[in-house]
């Protein structure tokens, strides 16, 4: 099995440990990984803020770059949602038939990390060990656009030593919403405060998700408030073993 890793712009810049964990995890599962260094961004931030011209060019870049890839794995559910939900409309508006055809062929081979593990590799037990109390936050895109359903829970349930605590109001947004978090900073913060109460009520050591954007939001508030808990991308939990624990534990 060969796969190409699209790390996404913000993971590359701000959360390289997530990328390293994906590499560790997938190589342990026997996947031959490649990384195309020319990659930048899927265009989500521009598209969702209304900057369609910029979003077009990033979407075009993505499709051209990966059209020959066997499989593309992306450890960010909102970026996968961008590709699936918004690229077709963007290309239609652009009137580019070639790109539309290329996307139609490519999009079936683009997978979010938990989809790749369960649907493509067919594994639930990835051999991870993470003896900590953890609660899982379902990002809105993972929940409602990708319909990840119980995939994340199935993967986490097989992690040895983990103490999984359900998060109340799992389907409620954390208030990040990309540029929403600054354009409507006060409203976003109010939503975050509510979410944080739910997270705190679990008494978990770690709040995990399949999207570092929500975690950046939650983690930023936890740090500000000395909440005594941290965020960690699910890839890092799944990569963690007894001999090589997650970087966050060091």
């Amino acid at each position: 099995m060969r796969a190409s890793l699209f790390i996404t712009c913000y993971n590359d810049t701000l959360f390289p440990e997530t990328g390293r964990a994906v590499v560790t995890l997938l190589e342990r599962l026997g996947v031959g990984l490649e990384f195309r260094p020319q990659q930048t961004c899927c265009g989500q931030m521009h598209a969702n803020t209304g900057f369609r011209t910029e979003a077009f060019s990033q979407a075009r870049r993505f499709v051209r770059m990966y059209q020959d890839a066997e499989t593309v794995v992306i450890p960010s559910s909102s970026c996968v949602a961008m590709i699936r939900d918004q690229y077709p409309g963007l290309f239609e508006e652009l009137g580019d038939e070639t790109l539309r055809r290329q996307l139609a062929a490519l999009v079936l081979r683009v997978h979010e990390l938990s989809e790749f593990l369960i649907d493509v590799l067919g594994v639930e037990d990835v051999g991870a060990y993470f003896p900590h109390r953890v609660t899982y936050h379902a990002s809105c895109h993972g929940l409602r656009s990708l319909h990840l359903a119980d995939r994340p829970a199935r993967l986490l349930a097989k992690v040895r030593g983990i103490d999984l605590v359900p998060l109340p109001n799992l389907d409620r947004c954390c208030g990040f919403g990309g540029t929403f978090s600054v354009k409507n900073g006060e409203v976003s913060s109010a939503m975050l405060a509510v979410k944080l109460q739910d997270v705190a009520s679990t008494c978990a050591e770690f709040c995990t998700a399949l999207d570092n954007s929500c975690l950046m939001h939650l983690g930023g508030a936890m740090h500000r408030q000395y909440a005594g808990m941290r965020t960690i991308h699910m890839a890092e939990i799944l990569a963690s073993t007894e001999s090589a624990p997650a970087e966050a534990l060091k």
Partner: peptide, 11 residues
Amino acid sequence: PYASSLCGACY
């Protein structure tokens, strides 16, 4: 149009 985190609960 910006008064939303695009969480999709409405849809």
